[in-house]
Computed example of a mutant assay.
Amino acid sequence: MFSSDSNHINTNPLPDVTSNTLTDSSLPLQWVGMEKIGVPLTLALDNGKHQSLAAQADIFVSLDQASAKGIHMSRLHAILNTLDEEPFTKSLLDRLLDEAVSSQAGISNNAKITLTFDLLLKKPALLSNESGFQAYSVVVNGEVINGSHAYDIDVTIPYSSTCPCSASLSRQLYANAISEAFDSETIDKASLLQWIQSDQGSVATPHSQRSYAYIKMSTSNNPWPALDSLIRHFEEVIGTSVQTAVKRIDEQEFARLNANNLMFCEDAARRIKACLETLPYVTDYWFKVEHQESLHAHNAVVIDQK
């Protein structure tokens, strides 16, 4: 049986070590805060719809008042809890960053918030009526430094790449096999087509690999594009994005598209760089292109920046 004292609420003032205890060393600190806080987000898509998703948030403020023992972390957590009150936009993050600074009662001048989440986009198959969802990793980092806002957006784009060198070598083997199978000066068309579609026609295939573009963009204080629109734009630039649910007709079309879109990692990198140079809201960028080779046990990589 519980005593009634167990329900007693202490009404005495609670100690506040942060405010009432002096620091051991009067030195400012650049960033103090918390990482990997679970938060809900509502993202506005370019088709007018909204997507609810789970994210992880990091939030920090500067500790500029050297004599202060520490920051008010609970106030920062409370600010993050308002993320789901309206759709996620740049103006929302502008406000939350400013609130993070003002919540610290004069001991902080700067704040930063980083949000990490997977954006789910519905993708139709190439030819059939199939469709499925593709997850894209997105990181949005915002900072306010002495009243000035700036943002970085990171996206990861998976795609398929077929090696031009292996395609050329495969074509040579294919030509040699036809020359050996048909030794006369003329070839009967029906016989050739039958041979091509038989097991004998499987002479060599170019090697393809799942590839990734890791793109980091600085947008300063410029307005953002819709994130789903940005991702689809990069996919169009690269040319052979990975598929979700498919039927055989889609897989055949995918093979055709890859044959028409042969690329080394240098080709993909130049396409991405040319695209980044045309985006008016991007003030700086860094990217890495990674082709996870099927021929080799290592990856082919390009790294570049503005």
Rank of each mutant, 00 (worst) to 15 (best):
S3Y: 04
D5K: 08
S6P: 00
S6T: 12
H8V: 06
P15K: 12
P15G: 03
L22A: 11
L22H: 13
L29G: 06
K36E: 15
N47M: 13
Q51F: 05
D58T: 12
V61A: 08
Q65T: 10
A68N: 11
I71P: 00
H72E: 12
A78W: 01
I79V: 03
N81K: 09
T82K: 11
T82H: 07
L93E: 08
R95C: 10
L96P: 00
V101Y: 00
S102C: 13
A105G: 03
G106K: 13
G106V: 09
S108W: 02
I113V: 08
T116W: 04
L119A: 06
L121Y: 02
L127A: 10
S131H: 13
Q134H: 09
G142K: 05
G142T: 07
D152K: 08
V155P: 03
P158Y: 02
T162G: 07
C165A: 13
C165T: 13
S168M: 12
Q172S: 08
Y174E: 14
S198E: 03
D199N: 09
S202G: 05
P206C: 09
H207Y: 01
S208F: 01
A213H: 08
A213G: 12
I215F: 02
N221E: 10
N222C: 02
I231G: 01
G239H: 06
R248Y: 03
D250M: 03
R256Y: 07
N260H: 15
N260Y: 12
M263Q: 15
F264H: 12
E266C: 04
F287P: 04
F287A: 14
N299D: 13
V302Y: 07
V302K: 04
